[in-house]
């Protein structure tokens, strides 16, 4: 059996709000296998954002363990965690988060820039991804010259250009009209069909329903998970 992409074991995280401490994550365990399409759903304050940050190595658990692609991450130093983010995780945000002074191509090249990939190689890989996502003629546009849908496609291109094993999308359609939202979701699902593990965090029930597996959260706990119990065996 291959290692799961995500293996959270009894992970806990508390935040202090004045006198009170809030259990953002309360003994959460979760296994996600390679190629799965998962929606994490819940109201705001349910802990789903904290879970996303935990999965994206942007936050550290207080207790428990997190293995990403079989690598135990909770005791890695900041430098190693940054490298794991760079190489194995792609982020797609609700607000796109393109760097406004950079062109679409330069935005897509950013992760490779951080990795230290040579310029020629960077350009080549960026163009490959842009060709696939139909962004080639927008390569030199700044983000304010792009429509919302195009911006999110650039962001997705940036997320997958390093060929990560895990794609984390936080309300990816939240800032888009329904047609652009549809297109973006189709694109993400295509990428998933090609083998990338896709985790979508949303409070939108309709969006969550598109995923094969839904995880619901409330008060920092996973309250329901319709994982197919036989999925390990199927693969």
């Amino acid at each position: 059996m291959t290692e799961p992409v995500i293996a959270l074991e009894h992970v806990a995280k508390t935040f202090r709000l004045g006198e009170q401490s809030v259990h953002a994550l309360d003994d959460v365990s979760l296994r996600v296998l390679a190629g799965e399409y998962l929606a994490v759903m819940g109201q705001s304050g349910s802990g789903k954002s904290t879970l996303l940050n935990m999965l994206g190595l942007l936050d550290r658990p207080e207790r428990g363990a997190y293995r990403l692609d079989g690598i135990e991450t909770s005791d890695l130093d900041e430098e190693r965690r940054a490298r794991l983010r760079r190489e194995r995780i792609g982020f797609v945000f609700q607000a796109f988060h393109l760097v406004p002074r950079l062109s679409a191509r330069e935005n897509i090249e950013l992760p490779m820039l951080l990795e230290g990939v040579a310029p020629a190689q960077r350009r080549h890989l960026a163009e490959q991804v842009m060709a696939r996502l139909g962004l080639l003629e927008r390569a030199n546009h700044l983000s304010n010259q792009l429509s919302g849908g195009q911006r999110q496609r650039v962001a997705i291109a940036r997320a997958i250009v390093m060929r990560p094993s895990l794609l984390l999308a936080d309300e990816p359609t939240g800032n888009l009209d329904s047609r652009s939202g549809q297109e973006v979701m189709q694109l993400l699902e295509e990428l998933n069909a090609d083998g990338i593990t896709l985790v979508v965090v949303t409070h939108d029930a309709a969006l969550g329903a598109r995923a094969r597996r839904q995880v619901r959260m409330a008060d920092g706990k996973i309250v329901s998970d319709n994982a197919d119990p036989n999925r390990d065996a199927q693969r």
């Binding site: 994206g56 942007l58 900041e78 940054a82 983010r85 982020f91 951080l114 990795e115 390093m162």
Partner: peptide, 11 residues
């Protein structure tokens, strides 16, 4: 964003 894309604190 840069951090999410894999920049370390040192970067």
């Amino acid at each position: 964003l840069l951090k999410a894309l894999g920049a370390s604190s040192a970067d």
